[in-house]
Design a protein around this nucleic acid. Structure first.
Lengths: 154, 154
DNA sequence: TGTTTCCTCTGCGCCGCGCAGAGATCGTTC
DNA sequence: GAACGATCTCTGCGCGGCGCAGAGGAAACA
């Protein structure tokens, strides 16, 4: 039936979408002289509210804590973040983004994103909200499947 | 205005969506004992119609041809693909997926994807088509931006 | 105060990746 | 048909990100 075909089509186009993103992320990282993982991490940092510990970076990126330490090393050396000791718990290290670098980062995104909203010029607000809701659900679903995979349930 | 906020929201949720996918891909690769790049490559192979040359794999994944050769080495060693000389042009190497392994691969996907269609149970066909169309457009846009980045236009 | 737990950092080895050049094959030109 | 350049793939080499296991320091609890 049509429904089956639509789901199949959605599945296929999703994979293409993801493949395109992987290439895009790689190209942007090359452009900035960063490793793809580093760029991914910066993305995640800007999505978080407030400073983030090294351990949380490990959890967000899926790296081990040792690798997360070295990831922060690279970002710090490149000037994107600075380390700060947590006053409340001195074991923790807070990773804080440098505003100037973040602004520079944002400008690159703005240039890359120019023309992006025009893709949806023919969509109304409800349709945009629908797409956002779809992404929220799939992201949530993915996270749940990752948890199940790691727990060995699949 | 509401439109601005919607676009901003879409932008944010897109990044979360991508981050979730990166973790998902990593987790699935771990589960299969593959490198994330290898899994990405298998995904791309199943999206292509017919056998694919090593050079095309390099283009699809964004790797150099040397790295693509080694990528095919790993996939071949793991039994996912076999190499075949192109009869028409003997310089080329055709990478052909092994049906049994592809089926095994598909079964993992089916288990992971179980419950996925249920996420859209409340959406009608037109809404599904809209989401697919959105992904098609953004994937195309991403590819164009990658081309501009590589050409040094940005 | 002593012990346990938590968070981060550090040596070590593995391996994916880009780079540059070699080898093989095709197309073209004289 | 012989020589030349172009194209496709493969192979050494070194760099560097990653996981692993253990160390060090700080907090929590007895």
């Amino acid at each position: 039936m049509a429904r089956e075909r639509l789901l199949e089509e959605l599945f296929t186009v999703s994979r293409r979408h993801m493949a395109a993103y992987a290439l895009f992320n790689q190209a942007v990282a090359d452009h900035l002289g960063l490793h793809p993982t580093d760029l991914q991490c910066l993305n995640l940092l800007t999505l978080e509210s407030g400073p983030v510990t090294t351990g949380r970076i490990a959890a967000l990126t899926g790296l081990t804590t040792g690798s997360a330490t070295r990831l922060v090393d690279r970002l710090e050396r490149a000037g994107y973040v600075v380390r700060e000791r947590d006053a409340a718990d001195r074991r923790k290290v807070l990773v804080v983004t440098v505003p100037e670098k973040a602004a520079e980062f944002g400008r690159v995104w703005d240039r890359l994103g120019a023309g992006w909203p025009a893709l949806f010029g023919d969509l109304d607000d409800a349709q945009l909200a629908l797409i956002a809701e779809y992404m929220r659900r799939t992201a949530e679903f993915s996270a749940a499947q990752v948890a199940r995979l790691r727990a060995g349930e699949i």
